[in-house]
Design a binder for these strands. Sequence first.
RNA 1: GCCCCCAUCGUCUAGGGGACCAGGACGUGGGCCUUUCAAGCCCAAGACCGGAGUUCGAAUCUCCGUGGGGGCACCA
Length: 490
Amino acid sequence: MNTNSPIRVRFAPSPTGHLHIGGARTALYNYLFAKAYSGSMILRVEDTDRNRYVEDSAKQLIKDLKWLGINWDEGPDVGGIFSPYIQSERTKLHRSHAEQLVKIGKAYYCFCDKVRLQSIRSKHKGYDGHCREIDADTAMERVTSGEKHTIRFRSPKQGTTTVDDLIRKNITVKNKQLEDFVLFKADGFPVYHLAAMVDDHLMEITHVIRGDEWLSSIAKHALIIRAFGWSEPIWCHLSVLTQPGGKGKMSKRDAKTKEQDDNHSIFIHDLRNKGYHPEAIINWMALMGWSLDDKQEDFKLADLEKVFKLERINPSPAAVNFSKLDYFQGKHVRQMSDREVAASVQPFLRKSGIVPDKEMLLSLVPLIKNRIVTFEDSVEWLSFFFTKEIMISPSEFTNKKSTQEETLVILQNVKLTLEQLQEFKHESIETELRSLAETMGLKLGQLLNPVRLAISGQKVSPPLFETLEILGENLVHSRIEKAIKLLENI
RNA sequence: GCCCCCAUCGUCUAGGGGACCAGGACGUGGGCCUUUCAAGCCCAAGACCGGAGUUCGAAUCUCCGUGGGGGCACCA
């Protein structure tokens, strides 16, 4: 291709379902490459398969990409000089190009129906060339008379086709391996192979960065391009993403059973609903099949836009590793300001029926910031602050270390101590409770754990002194009192 | 079955003939800190798929195996 022309790349999903991390990562690499080299990113929706079309999924796709921070310069929603960017609106273009290939003898009309194709499939590796030698005039007549037909590519029968992939060097395919594949379907729509090549050419795409699943048909694509006499884009095929165990392709089909546990999903919108931050997802995805060096692993989208290089893409398959996503997510949360965390957490609290006071929430954030992974996690850390009644079963108060009576005494003493406080601040609470533990001859933990249970209903909670302060004198007293009654009445 | 791609710790990776008894990160185990749980810090275990070749020298280059993956539609 012409190396002087500005870089133009495209992400070309088909609207058949939700955006998952495989597609998102392809989109990301395209986007980053465009940014790093001041090129243009194009979004093109490839919806030529009417059977698999899923209503609204293009809209969802766009929403998910935008949420991740991936933008484009041309696309169905923003337009551009090569409009339209919805492939099904370009079928006239595809048709005329297919016919052009017929005209110059690189393709031919085929009148075989599905029944015949089915019957030869067992005997032949691919299409048997039944309509290959029908003379042009006869074929033309049958087409104009309205006979159902497809247009097939006239694949070379001998020799080899060699295509250059940026990260895999030469890929050579024996031409006899190629059948006369369909370019244009009887339903009036083009097949991917034709449509994508025509659109890429017309849209002046310079680099095709796409998934590994296209590698096996790259010879077809090169042959189509060469048949037209066009120059090829630079090809760059990404590796596949495999299941967490490293075995088997990560797929949408069994995503529910294998890649997805309670907290993780391969779908971007699920991750979003779970409370992951887009930057964490970006950082995680970027490193599945790409690296800068052996030093830096923390990247913001803005960083990646500066340093991304196609040459550093790794051709070998990468297994999805959700624990690393959690790591990046946790790390990202800790880097956010308290205000940002509060804002991110709020929708999840609301979803569970909690409408927190803004200032109170802000004061709680420091207590949970390095305890949560996803924003949704905040709900279980904070809900006891906002619910009127908490549930405790008395049996939880006793364990191998302390009996009912001991716990009761602790709570009574704590109650007294707290009642005598001048001000209900965590510093003074801490001072008094520490000295109470000392006078009672208890370890701080022994003293605090029953209190924790009494006021939160949980064995684990945010740091207790701060928790008590924020919970407030009244609530603390009533909850401790309630726990005391509970213990007395066993 | 045929074709194509890939191969370094469990996982993501650095490395690209001597700098490597192979470096980093996640995870795992242990320790420190500590009011629970985290976070943080420290330590540890843990890999060049096998075999030939090329070379003074191979994780690195070549070939052959093996393993894994992807594709062989009027799907994308």
